[in-house]
């Protein structure tokens, strides 16, 4: 659509993907997702955050997905009810569709029924697989046009964390997909266990910073800043960094030369059509031929978020770099696909 519209109404200040944005989320509402296995301390962490200046004006969505847990008993008032929490915050406890809950919150805000909020915080149930939540925000048709995930924070309980990571695939996935990892209940576990847990988390997710929460308190900025540049600058390329028992791997693909968008698109289309369900998350920036700034690219499984061109590069590094979190798809396979598409090139008129 954008290409067509830009051809019709061209603008020298717009790129291939429309208006160049100051930041990755553009004007969309920032979303923080707090996840973690049962009993990890999510509710305590969230409640502490809401009382801080950074937490002001947050809409909290407690997403139970029909599961019954301890959190449910603590927070539930009634189904899909919006509760005012003070500090300009609202809480929506939803058992139904997350999309409906979010849309209703925004509509109520516009009608002045609830206080104006500037951030959404989703507290998932302990057993939640966050992939469907990430997918919900991945396309314009769903919520991607209005909301942007800024932080996925996963809490891991210092006492039971190691066991959960070993035995529960949901817990592993929560850790792997996180932007930030927080170890909670450290006062109840010895330092050896903590170290082992930290090492395990590092192995599962080498990109995420690991914080320690004492009594549910962490730097509130960690709930609004991912700590990850979309650039994945800390990672060297072309090496599979971690593989896990579930076949989940994460790696970074880096390319120094500017890419041709049609070539990249062809490679991605092929990958998505063949292995879409196994692409748990792809995120990074691209240096595209003809673009002034870096283009932020994100995909979750078969859903590709509309790319966003930023006004400026964040640093001097002009290489394209993409972090892949995949299941059963290896770095050499992805690399080979990209090389093949590059070799095929791009035929005008495609």
């Amino acid at each position: 659509m954008n290409d067509v519209v830009l051809n019709l109404f061209p603008s020298t200040s717009a790129g291939r993907f429309g208006r160049r944005q100051k930041r990755e989320r553009g004007s969309r509402l920032p979303v923080t997702i707090v996840t973690g296995f049962l009993g990890a301390g999510k509710t305590t962490l969230v409640q502490r955050f809401l009382k801080t200046p950074e937490g002001r004006g947050t809409a909290l969505i407690v997403n139970e997905f029909g599961s019954v847990g301890i959190d449910d008993a603590l927070l539930r008032t009634s189904e899909d009810t919006v509760t005012l929490l003070g500090n300009g915050c609202v809480c929506c406890n939803t058992r139904s569709d997350l999309q409906i809950a979010l849309r209703k919150l925004v509509a109520d805000r516009e009608r002045g029924k609830i206080p104006h909020f500037g951030r959404v915080l989703i507290e998932t149930s302990g057993l939640a697989d966050i992939s469907p939540i990430l997918q919900t925000f991945s396309t314009d048709r769903a919520l991607g046009g209005e909301f942007a995930i800024e932080v996925v924070l996963t809490l891991v309980d210092a006492v039971n964390g190691l066991r959960n990571l070993d035995t529960a695939p949901e817990a592993r996935k929560q850790a792997i997909l996180a932007d930030r990892l927080v170890i909670s209940k450290v006062d109840l576990a010895d330092s050896r266990t903590q170290k082992k847990l930290a090492a395990k988390l590092k192995e599962l997710n080498p990109r995420a910073d690991i914080d320690i929460a004492v009594d549910g308190e962490i730097d509130p900025k960690h709930l609004i800043e991912s700590g990850q540049d979309a650039t994945a600058a800390r990672h060297s390329g072309f090496i599979a960094e971690a593989s896990h028992s579930d076949g989940i791997a994460s790696f970074v693909i880096r390319e120094k030369k500017p890419l041709e968008w049609p070539v990249f698109q062809r490679a991605l289309d092929t990958l998505v059509s063949l292995r879409g369900p196994d692409l748990l998350r792809i995120k990074g920036i691209l240096n595209l031929q003809g673009a002034k700034g870096p283009v932020v690219f994100q995909a979750v499984q078969h859903l590709v978020h509309p790319p966003v061109e930023l006004a400026e590069w964040p640093d001097k590094d002009r290489s394209s770099r993409l972090v892949f979190i995949t299941r059963g798809v290896s770095e050499p396979q992805v690399r080979a696909l990209f090389e093949a598409c590059k070799a095929l090139g791009f035929v005008t008129g495609e």
Binding site: S27, P53, R56, G57, G88, H116, F117, G118, R119
Partner: peptide, 17 residues
């Protein structure tokens, strides 16, 4: 109002972006 974008001041100011 808070200087943070997208937040509501205690006085009811609406600021988004």
């Amino acid at each position: 109002v808070s200087r943070k974008s997208g937040q509501t001041g205690a006085d009811g100011t609406v600021t988004w972006n």
